[in-house]
Simulated assay, not measured.
Amino acid sequence: MPEDAPRPEPFTPHTPPAALEDLRTRLRATRWPDPAEDTDWSQGTDTAYLRELVAHWAEDFDWPAREAELARLPHFRIPLGGHRIHYVHVRATAPAGPVLPLVLSHGWPDSFWRYTKVIPLLTDPGAHGADPADAFDVVVPDMPGYGYSDRPVGPAPDSVAVAGLWAELMGALGYARFGAAGGDVGSHVSRYLALDHPDRVVAVHRTDGGLPVFAGDPADLSPEERAWFADVSAWSTAEGAYAAVHRTKPGTAAVGLTDSPAGLAAWIVEKLRSWSDCGPDGERGFTQDEILTNVMLYWLTGTIGSSMRMYRANAAIPPAQLTRRVETPSGFSLFRGDVLRPPRAWLERTTNLVRVTEPERGGHFAAFEEPELYARELRDFFRPYRAAATG
């Protein structure tokens, strides 16, 4: 580690018993709305399902056991850009060749939680039936205002600023060159890492292309691109109300979501279900305990408001930034159950596209839903770039 680099400190998640007792009291006192006439989630979170989840949360969910599982990962916090950034850092186990450092960026509504299943598959592939030569050193930070990272005191940083923090973090850990990967907001952060630090990012992998921004003549778009733009517009009208709230009035919603655990669960669970490759019950990709672990990381840290404000910050990114082309080698895994999967023509227009695949299972949270598939995608994509990072 460079001598003048900020110094990480070990961190162990720990919840005081009083915080859990307060949570149970609030859950048991939930005031429930009238159920919607539709029971297919078409109006948002299904009340009957949420009642069942909240009852389990209040009476049976063993958070201390879950927290102990999370604490087995090596957690750290480090001062960067006026924030204490939390991250998980796991080095490769028994590598059989050059080790590629890899920074994984999460999205909303999640945190480092997104990658907890995939970390061992990436750091110790030989123990999971894969080639030991494909081992990574994995770094998974929580963005400012998410998880165990500090909530920003002033304005929330946008994805450009967070990419700069990640570059600083990787330098502090001694990684001169590295790979970047992510989805959702983490896709944006990974993109700006590649754009602003092309001498350090050897390749970038993403699970989505983000919302399209095009400053050229629409006639220059391919038929597939025009159809995709129309699909994005229709999806935003039907499903994008949450993002409009986050961009415009996050403080209003944050009051209720920070005060009511049932309300917080409703806000998050509906997205976990609608964006994932799940069955009708919403739990093919996630068990109730896995859902609640994710929700608890928002509840206990009080970060739902600060996470939403990042949308407002990103909405102010200048258009000139949004339309920059990524020249770093780029790969995409467009999982079948994800939303707004872009056509190849758009990816070729906006990036130096070297690989695109369509895994048969998995959705927006593919690293958690299908960790084996996701790990395989990363191994296959980054394999040609290992020497570039270590040479």
Rank of each mutant, 00 (worst) to 15 (best):
V99L: 09
V202P: 07
I119G: 04
R77S: 07
P132Q: 02
A266R: 02
P16I: 08
L340I: 06
F136T: 10
R191N: 08
T293D: 13
I119T: 09
D380I: 02
V189L: 11
G154N: 07
R26M: 08
F332Y: 15
Y148R: 13
R312K: 15
V326P: 02
T328M: 04
V295P: 10
A316R: 15
W299F: 07
L100T: 05
S330N: 10
T390C: 14
R226I: 08
A315L: 06
R114S: 12
P329R: 12
A320S: 15
H128R: 05
R349I: 03
P198W: 08
L102G: 07
P343N: 05
T116F: 09
A215I: 02
P280E: 14
A29E: 14
P13A: 09
A181F: 12
D142F: 05
A366P: 01
W346Q: 14
P98K: 10
R66N: 07
E67I: 00
D281V: 01
R51F: 03
F286G: 06
R51E: 04
P371V: 09
S236E: 15
A172E: 06
A135P: 02
W63E: 01
A262M: 07
D199V: 01
F381N: 12
G279T: 11
G216I: 08
Y192R: 01
A241D: 05
S260H: 08
Y298I: 01
V354R: 14
T390A: 15
G302M: 13
A253M: 13
L23S: 04
P157N: 03
A18M: 03
A92G: 05
W346T: 09
A388R: 05
C278E: 12
L272D: 02
G82M: 02
G263H: 12
A176P: 00
R383D: 04
